[in-house]
Design a protein around this nucleic acid. Structure first.
Length: 483
RNA sequence: GGCGCUGUCGUCUAGUCCGGUCUAGGACACCAGGUUCUCAUCCUGGAGAUCGCGGGUUCAAAUCCCGCCGGCGCUACCA
C-alpha cells in the first residue's frame, strides 16, 4: 500500500514550495491508489501558530489536494476533510520511543554548555573538520541538558527515487540532538517516529532534506524499524537561482490567489515545473497529470519560478471558464476596486467580462478592463484622437459624421452586428491617394472617443455595452475636446 | 571550511542509462507577417543552446572516462 504524507510546519503562510511538495505527494498517491496524509509538524511551540496551520489547510483545499485521513472529525471549514495529525498532540507516542532509545543506550543525556559546544565547533572548523559533537556518559549532570543520539558511525547509503544512490559518512555527523526532553522530540526524531507509526511508504520532500536523511536512517536502524523509500524534489528557485524567498516576490500561495490566479492554473503550473509533459501542449487536465505522473521523470536540478509562464497559463485557464462562472470569480476583484453590481446588472456585466476574457492574465485584470465602461467621464489627451496625419478638424468631422449615422439607429438595435453593418461601409469608403482603403480614419477616432485609450476592445463591442446614449455622449465629448 | 545535490536556448525542459536517427526537439518569453483601426485572442514564420570548461576513449560523444569550475542546499536545543 502506497502511503505518502505532506509534513509542513505551521511557521508561516503556506509557501508555494510546500504546495508543490504537497502536489507531488498527492499525485503520487492518486496515481497508485494510495493514501495521502497531512501531518502538521508543530513541535516548535515558539514559532508554530494556529493561523499558519489554517493557511496550510486552506491552501491545500484551494488547490484541491484533499487528504485521506486524520484523527479528527470531518470538518466543515475544510470542505469535508479530516482534522489533521498534529505532532503537538502526539507527545505520548514520542515519549515511548525516546525512552526506548535511552534504555537501549542509543541515546543519552548531554549536559555540555552552549559555550563548550560553541568553542568545540569553532575549533573543528578551524581545523577544516566537520563540526560535530561527540558526547560521552562522563559529562557532569546539570540542569537543562538535551538528549543526543549515540551515533554508531559507519557509511550510510540510500537510494533516492529521483537521484539514485546517495552516500554519507555517519562519523561526520556526531551525536546529534534528537530531543529536548523525554516528551519533546526534535524534527528528525519526530519525523522518523511518525513516518513509522503512520506507515508511510514513500517520503517525498524537498531537496533541502537530503542531509537529514542519513540521520533519520540511523534512527530507524537504532529503533530496529524499516525506513521508507525516499525521493527528494528539486527546489523552486528565485530569478537569481537561490531558494525562492520573499525578496523574489510573492512566496505565499494565497498571495497568488489574491492576485487572481486560478487554482487550476496553479495546479497545472506547479505540476509541470521541473518536468516536461510528453506532448506539445503543457495545458493538461488534472486526470492527464495524474496519469502521466512519474517520479522518474522529475528533473534533478532546481527550477526557477517563471512568473511569465504562470501568467500565460492562467490566461489560458481564464479563457476556458464559462462566463457566468468567470463573473463569480471576478466579482470579488471588482468589489475590491470599488465597483458594485446588482443582480439585475449581471447580464450587462457578463458582456464586459466576455469582452475582457481574452485579454486577462489574472482575474484582477478585470478592474482595468471594466473601468472604461464604468467611468462617467473619460480622461485622455485630445492628441490621442488623431489618426496618422489627420488634423483636428478632419478628426472632428470624422466623429461628427459617424455620430450622425449612429443617431439614426434605434437603441434596441445597438448591437455589435448592426453597428458594424452601418458604420463599416462609411469606414471603407475612404480611399487614400495610394488607392488603399483606410478604415482607421473612421474607426480610430471613434474607438478612442469611446474608450479614451490607445489600446482597447473594438468600437462596436464597446458601443453595444455602453448603449446609444452614452456612446453618443462620448463622441460629443471627443468633438468638444478637439475644438 | 565540511558534507551533499546539481550544470542542454533568457526561463522550464526532451534527448544522456543502451555513443551515430541531434545540422539538439517542445513550451513560455521575444521578434516579424496575417486576421475589419489599436490592443488582446487566434494562425503562420523567425531568431535564440560551440549541450559549464579542459583533456581522454572512439571512425563517431550532449551521451562513456578523468580533471577542473560554477550554482544551490545542509552544517540549530528550526522544520
Amino acid at each position: 500500500m502506497i502511503r505518502v504524507r505532506i509534513a509542513p510546519s505551521p511557521t508561516g503562510q503556506m509557501h508555494v514550495g510546500t504546495a508543490r511538495t504537497a502536489l507531488f505527494n498527492w499525485l503520487f498517491a492518486k496515481k497508485s491508489n494510495g493514501v495521502f496524509v497531512l501531518r502538521i509538524e508543530d513541535t516548535d511551540r515558539e514559532r508554530s501558530k494556529p493561523e499558519y496551520e489554517e493557511s496550510i489547510l486552506k491552501g491545500l483545499n484551494w488547490l484541491g489536494l484533499n487528504w485521506d485521513e486524520g484523527p479528527g472529525e470531518k470538518s466543515g471549514i475544510y470542505k469535508g476533510n479530516y482534522g489533521p495529525y498534529r505532532q503537538s498532540e502526539r507527545g505520548e507516542i514520542y515519549g515511548k520511543y525516546i525512552k526506548s532509545l535511552l534504555d537501549s543506550g542509543n541515546a543519552l543525556w548531554c549536559y555540555h554548555t552552549n559555550a563548550d559546544l560553541e568553542s568545540e565547533k569553532t575549533e573543528q572548523i578551524e581545523k577544516n573538520e566537520a563540526p560535530r559533537h561527540i558526547c560521552s556518559r562522563n559529562s557532569k549532570p546539570l540542569d537543562g541538558g538535551v538528549i543526543r543520539f549515540q551515533n554508531p558511525g559507519g557509511k550510510i547509503m540510500f537510494s533516492d527515487l529521483i537521484r539514485g544512490d546517495i552516500g554519507f559518512d555517519a562519523n561526520l555527523m556526531g551525536d546529534f540532538v534528537i530531543a529536548k526532553d523525554e516528551q519533546t522530540p526534535l524534527y528528525n526524531l519526530a519525523a522518523v517516529i511518525d513516518d513509522w507509526e503512520m506507515k508511510i511508504s514513500h517520503v517525498i520532500r524537498g531537496e533541502d532534506h537530503i542531509s537529514n536523511t542519513p540521520k533519520q536512517i540511523l534512527m530507524f536502524d537504532a529503533l530496529k524499524i524499516r525506513p521508507p523509500e525516499y525521493a527528494h524534489l528539486p527546489m523552486i528557485l528565485g530569478t537569481d537561482r537561490s531558494k525562492l524567498s520573499k525578496r523574489h516576490g510573492a512566496t505565499a500561495l494565497f498571495e497568488y490567489k489574491d492576485m487572481g490566479y486560478l487554482p487550476e492554473a496553479m495546479f497545472n503550473f506547479l505540476a509541470i515545473l521541473g518536468l516536461s509533459p510528453k506532448g506539445n501542449t503543457e495545458i493538461l487536465l488534472k486526470e492527464e497529470i495524474i496519469k502521466e505522473f512519474s517520479l522518474k521523470d522529475v528533473q534533478k536540478s532546481g527550477a526557477i519560478f517563471n512568473i511569465d509562464k504562470l501568467n500565460w497559463m492562467n490566461g489560458e485557464y481564464i479563457r476556458g471558464v464559462p462566463i457566468d462562472k468567470l463573473r463569480k470569480l471576478c466579482l470579488p476583484f471588482l468589489i475590491s476596486c470599488g465597483y458594485a453590481f446588482q443582480n439585475a446588472e449581471f447580464e450587462w456585466l457578463d458582456k464586459i467580462i466576455a469582452l475582457e476574457q481574452p485579454r486577462m492574465k489574472r482575474l484582477s485584470d478585470i478592474c482595468e478592463g471594466a473601468a472604461l465602461f464604468m467611468r462617467d467621464k473619460l480622461e485622455y489627451d485630445a492628441e490621442l484622437l488623431r489618426w496618422r496625419d489627420m488634423g483636428n478638424e478632419e478628426v472632428a468631422e470624422s466623429l461628427n459624421s459617424t455620430s450622425n449615422l449612429l443617431a439614426d439607429i434605434l437603441e434596441e438595435n445597438f448591437t455589435k452586428e448592426n453597428l458594424e453593418k452601418i458604420v463599416m461601409p462609411k469606414a471603407e469608403a475612404w480611399v487614400g491617394t495610394n488607392g488603399k482603403i483606410d478604415r482607421g480614419r473612421t474607426l480610430w477616432p471613434l474607438r478612442v472617443a469611446l474608450s479614451g485609450l490607445k489600446n482597447s476592445p473594438g468600437p462596436f463591442e464597446i458601443m453595444e455595452i455602453l448603449g446609444k446614449e452614452k456612446s453618443l455622449r462620448r463622441l460629443r465629448e471627443g468633438m468638444i475636446m478637439l475644438e
